[in-house]
């Protein structure tokens, strides 16, 4: 516990709080720009069980922002290498890698054992799948998404709070919203948003402060402006998600390519 002494000294955390962190199980979906800082901080904080889902391999253009990875990691699976790198930094923790894509057939099984899910993906198809699976399993999930110099942040499905579909009911059409590859992205942007996600995860575990539920925070790095927009849960939409199969939902409202 000596390595966590700066946490334990905080009266808001203490030994009991640190034990809560050690007992928590967090699933990180996407080990990219958002996932890299998030994983480093959750690992450093002593989150007892961390799951990492990513089917992709490290490429040279990832290194500009995905600060977890090194040149020697090129072409290796991101989930597997992230597990190895995190274990070397904190060997006491249980870290599990899932070097697969999250799909309608494996999402429920992968998410089920975890307390908190973090959406660090880069496409709408997986974001809506995470949303719907978390509704079905009644798990909270911490969301962030980025565009060039701007980010969005929220915590969905937390203690009966609204979900991503309550904000944007259906996925945008293919090509409507460019990803980082198409639009470019300032490297520090996912660093900042991923760190905010780690902060929300730890607040939820420790029951500290005000969890960012029912509000979307919008951050602009060029103006340093932050705005927060309140929105409500759409109960009938949530009910539809609970009643339908994940594969049915995806086929019927998600005509985009991942």
């Amino acid at each position: 516990m000596k390595r966590y002494s700066r946490h334990i000294t905080l009266s808001e955390v203490g030994l009991i709080g640190q034990l809560k962190i050690a007992e928590s199980k967090v699933l990180v979906i996407g080990a990219g720009g958002l996932g890299a800082p998030l994983l480093l901080y959750l690992n450093a904080a002593g989150v007892g069980t961390i799951g990492i889902v990513d089917f992709d391999t490290v490429s040279l253009s990832n290194l500009q922002r995905q600060v977890l990875f090194r040149e020697q990691d090129l072409d290796l699976n991101k989930a597997d290498i992230a597990k190895e790198l995190l274990s070397a930094r904190n060997s006491e923790l249980n870290i599990k890698s899932y070097p697969v894509a999250l799909t309608t057939s494996n999402a429920l099984e992968i998410i089920k054992p975890y307390d908190i899910v973090v959406d660090c993906t880069d496409n709408f198809r997986t974001r809506y799948l995470i949303n719907d699976a978390c509704i079905k399993l009644n798990k909270p999930f911490v969301f962030a998404a980025i565009y060039k110099f701007e980010g969005q942040l929220s915590v969905f499905n937390y203690a009966g709070g609204p979900t991503y579909r309550c904000l944007f009911p259906t996925p945008p059409k293919a090509g409507e919203v460019p990803n980082c590859e198409e639009a470019g992205v300032m490297g520090v942007l996912p660093g900042i948003l991923g760190t905010y996600q780690a902060n929300e995860v730890l607040k939820m575990i420790l029951n500290l402060g005000e969890v960012l539920s029912g509000k979307l925070v919008s951050i602009n790095l060029l103006t340093n402006q932050q705005n927060s927009f309140q929105f409500r849960r759409n109960e009938s939409l949530v009910k539809q998600v609970i009643e339908e199969d994940l594969s049915y939902i995806e086929l019927n409202d998600c005509n985009i390519n991942a």
Partner: peptide
């Protein structure tokens, strides 16, 4: 896109009473 006034996303039939309106799309990058 979503439209917020007074930092709140309301209904389409709401009358605009705020001097500041924010209009934003979903982001996908990660």
């Amino acid at each position: 896109l979503k439209i917020a006034q007074n930092n709140t996303i309301g209904e389409l039939e709401d009358e605009i009473t705020s001097k500041n309106i924010d209009i934003f799309p979903p982001f996908s990058g990660g």
